[in-house]
């Protein structure tokens, strides 16, 4: 492959671009993170079928959350995954192919809000404690538990905010971290001027 310079035909270029593969030789692969919401039957085995599909077909999962919706027969999953355009479209199609999935929605690239919940235990006493509480204040976190030398904090926000908070807490000595994984929801469309 490498010893011969291959010039691509126009059709081959179309295919590469459609797959989201780099066209220039040596360019890095373009894997993007995507957030995919899945509505599925709230039945035994539905969740495992989704997760199993990811492992059976070699797709990545960065995080996954699941919970019941307002309809008790329907669960909602939020899957964070990564890949180029071809991989992401395969993931969506393979998800749709499962009999238990009712709706699959890639919210990436749309206008959406995302949140993650994080609970964190930090070891701190004396001056350190007030410093931790100050940072907590800045991040609009809440204290959920306190003992002589441990503070348990709760923070909610987009994943980047949670990352930043966990990083700041690192220097104070983290005892334990529990993160929920991301959930995302598309914003309702804004009414246009005419409608107002």
């Amino acid at each position: 492959m490498n010893d011969e310079a291959i010039t691509l035909t126009p059709q081959q270029l179309i295919r590469k671009r459609a797959a989201g593969e780099p066209v220039e030789p040596g360019a890095p692969p373009q894997a993007q993170q995507h957030i995919i919401n899945v509505l599925l039957e709230n039945s035994m085995g539905a969740l495992i079928r989704v997760v199993n599909m990811f492992s059976a077909r070699g797709f990545n999962i960065d995080s996954v959350t699941v919970g019941v919706t307002d309809d008790p027969t329907v669960s909602r999953m939020c899957i964070v995954t990564r890949g180029n355009d071809r991989v992401i479209s395969q993931i969506i199609r393979q998800l749709n192919r499962l009999v238990d999935t009712i709706e699959v929605d890639d919210v990436t690239g749309t206008d959406f809000v995302e949140r993650e919940l994080c609970m964190i235990k930090v070891r701190c006493t004396g001056d350190k404690r007030s410093e931790v509480l100050q940072i907590n204040e800045i991040f609009r976190g809440r204290v959920v538990d306190v003992t002589r030398d441990i503070l348990a904090l709760e923070i909610v926000g987009p994943t980047r905010k949670v990352d930043a908070f966990v990083n700041l807490m690192r220097m104070h000595g983290i005892e334990e971290v529990a993160r929920s994984g991301r959930v995302a929801m598309q914003r309702a469309p804004q009414p246009t001027r005419g409608e107002i």
């Binding site: 035909t9 059709q11 295919r15 459609a18 797959a19 479209s89 395969q90 199609r93 393979q94």
Partner: peptide, 27 residues
Amino acid sequence: VDRWAPHAAVIHIEIDKSCISKNIYAD
């Protein structure tokens, strides 16, 4: 796959969506 039918545009008629553009992009 990269060298298959290098000049051909592809029309794909297929009941299983996950087979479309899986190996060869369908125009």
